[in-house]
Simulated assay, not measured.
Amino acid sequence: MTKDLEGKGAVITGSSRGIGAATAQLIAARGAGVVVNYRAKAPRANKVVKGIEEAGGRAVAVGADLTEDTGAKTLVDAAVENFGSLDLLILNASGGMEADRGEDYALKLNRDAQVNMVKAALEVMPAGSQIVFVTSHQAHFINQTATMDAYEPVARSKRAGEDALREMVPQFDEKGITLTVVSGDMIEGTITATLLDRAQPGAIEARREAAGKLYTVEEFAAEIASLVNKPGLEQAHTELVGGAEDFLSRQ
């Protein structure tokens, strides 16, 4: 594997499991030092770090709740202190279906926390850096295509987060930083898919039929990683990963 990210520092939010963890492993394998972020489950994050280190990579587990004021700065500082710089920020943390976090939690995490994280990162990111925002087709196309009731607050808040980051493009241009948006369908085996299927039995199967196939966590992580450091990406490019045809046909 090419070591094109050697000497780079990366922060991947929400990377103690699932898509974030799989992406962290792929980015570390290319030479980047990775800050593996978790909110509450330190053992899971430590396991991801151990796997990266055993494969010859560099990583550190850092606990930070992005909805808290100090969360973003904690992650930025960890990248600079451990790896010398922050050159890659992958905004993977997402949520809003948790019953115990309050009704404004989705917007707080999926929009406000994303913007705060980016603002903190911009203070140290050098020209040539990249910010990757991970979203879903259900969120990306929410203004044109309705989604399941259980997911609607999450979808609308994630779209609000994407819009807020797109509004920051002039700042990114000024600093020579590229924003890339990666939108995927429902992903097999993720906590969101599990919760949706519980709220609306048959939801996963219906989506699988409409899309033709649903990506696994590892397959989607590989798509995200393939856009990191990819030459010729336009500013604010949106990559639609799998199953978007039926969304596009409803535009």
Rank of each mutant, 00 (worst) to 15 (best):
T74W: 06
A203Q: 07
F141D: 02
S136H: 08
V49K: 07
T2R: 09
R58L: 15
E123T: 15
L227T: 14
L66P: 03
M1C: 11
S226L: 11
A93C: 14
G9N: 03
A24T: 02
K158A: 04
R159L: 12
D173P: 03
L75Q: 10
E81F: 10
V76Y: 05
R44P: 03
V115C: 05
S16R: 11
I52W: 03
Q114D: 02
R30G: 00
D197M: 14
S129V: 03
L66V: 13
N143M: 06
K8Q: 06
V49D: 05
G63M: 12
V34A: 05
V34E: 00
G84Q: 12
A203Y: 07
G212K: 09
K50P: 00
Q200S: 14
S226Y: 12
M148K: 15
L109P: 00
R111D: 10
K3S: 11
K8Y: 00
I19Y: 06
E6F: 08
E167V: 08
E53D: 06
T74Q: 13
A155P: 02
Y105Q: 11
G184Q: 09
V80E: 07
S85G: 15
I52G: 04
T180D: 01
H137N: 11
G176L: 09
E205F: 11
M186A: 11
V115Y: 01
G71N: 13
